[in-house]
């Protein structure tokens, strides 16, 4: 299968310290890939390079065959990339529906040019927004101001916003952070189902190994800026290098039965 996301030899240093050194990875359509590693392994740097927030020192990134290295996040969106953040990023001064509508507008080119000044915002794409909210179970909240929502709902709203861009690739930075354990599992199940149904490529980072090992199709393990292992959950679990990195952190103990 042809990969949606393809990164080759990514490198990034901060003041001479290598944060990411020579990382190459691929994610294919319909595949959930987890990027894990202990704190400081370079997950966030890697992630931010893929989404365009940080410019890599070297290497290249292809999304659906188009080179995106050095592009701005707003340009990368147009290539079909949806993004959620570790600390959820939504527009708190808008209603839940408006948050989704805005992303829909943007996807349909509605946020460029003089037309954006002349038209009214509110009635456009309302039906599509409601359909997406229905999909993630936020339809009853559609008219609520976003800042009134509990954090778990905001995290789900982020997913709806990301989906509104009709992405081929979802980049999710700790999608379950800050949620209760029931909610976490629910959100990941939902994500997995949508990804399979719509044939999305999903790359996510996560600290909760339980989530990682029960939902990821494939796991990539970073340590000190390089990939030390990748493969199916069981392969990775058995990998001696991974165990060495995580030894003593107790992380493996949490999810194991």
């Amino acid at each position: 299968m042809k990969p949606i996301l393809q990164a080759e030899g990514l490198r990034k240093s901060y003041q001479g310290v290598k944060a990411v050194a020579d990382v190459s990875l691929t994610v294919s359509a319909g595949e959930l890939v987890a990027l894990i590693g202990p704190n400081g392994a370079g997950k966030s740097t890697c992630f931010n390079m893929l989404s365009g927030q940080i410019r890599p020192d070297g290497g290249r990134i292809l999304i659906a065959g188009t080179e995106t290295t050095g592009l701005q996040p707003s340009d990368i969106f147009r290539l079909g990339v949806g993004r959620t953040f570790q600390v959820a990023q939504t527009c708190l001064s808008m209603t839940v529906r408006e948050n989704v509508q805005l992303a829909l507008q943007s996807r349909h080119g509605g946020l460029r040019g003089v037309r954006t000044l002349l038209s009214r915002f509110d009635r456009r794409f309302a039906a599509e927004a409601d359909a997406l909210l229905d999909l993630i179970g936020l339809a009853p909240q559609a008219n609520r101001p976003c800042h009134e929502l509990p954090y778990g709902d905001i995290k789900r709203l982020e997913l709806a916003i990301a989906l509104a861009g009709a992405p081929r690739l979802l980049l999710m930075d700790e999608p379950a952070a800050g949620m209760g354990s029931e909610e976490r599992a629910g959100l990941m199940r939902l994500t997995a189902a949508i990804a399979r149904e719509r044939q999305l490529a999903v790359l996510f980072t996560e600290h909760d190994m339980d989530i990682v090992f029960s939902h990821a199709d494939r796991i990539i393990v970073l340590s000190r800026g390089t990939i030390i292992a990748q493969g199916s959950p069981s392969d990775v679990r058995a990998h001696p290098g991974v165990q060495a990195v995580y030894l003593g952190t107790g992380i493996f103990a949490i999810g194991d039965p």
Partner: peptide
Amino acid sequence: FSPFGYALRALRDSPLRAAAIGI
């Protein structure tokens, strides 16, 4: 209340989100 105004507010509320939806 035009799309332009909403784009501005998105940038104000959350620059990261705004960039991620192509603004």
